[in-house]
């Protein structure tokens, strides 16, 4: 087969690795509790950020990576059951 491998930057690899870890954890959570939709939230968040954040905005991506890693740790807590999302009211 003649496929040229896609070259990802280190940052892209870090994001993809975080995404995979999120999916693994959320799938496990959903097995225990089928009513939760953690993976849906995770997928939409990654999609949203992939389209709204500029490729060159490395600072933003790095800060989101740090935030994501922290959230990943929180999700792994056995007490964790789902996200609650608050949006401030715009006047």
């Amino acid at each position: 087969m003649n496929t040229t491998p896609i070259r990802h930057s280190g940052l892209q690899k870090a994001v993809l690795s975080l995404y995979r870890s999120f999916l693994r954890v959320s799938n496990k959570k959903e097995m225990d509790n089928p009513s939760s939709s953690i993976s849906n939230y995770i997928k939409t968040q990654f999609r949203l950020k992939a389209t709204t954040i500029q490729k060159r905005d490395i600072n933003k991506i790095e800060s989101l990576l740090v935030k994501g890693k922290r959230q990943l740790e929180q999700i792994q807590d056995p007490e964790f059951s789902g996200f609650a999302v608050f949006t401030p009211k715009s006047k």
């Binding site: 896609i6 995404y19 995979r20 999916l23 693994r24 799938n27 990654f46 999609r47």
Partner: peptide, 14 residues
């Protein structure tokens, strides 16, 4: 895209 492939690979893992 790469996010979709990651999705599929996690499904394959399972």
């Amino acid at each position: 895209d790469s996010l979709d492939s990651a999705d599929i690979l996690v499904a394959v893992e399972e």
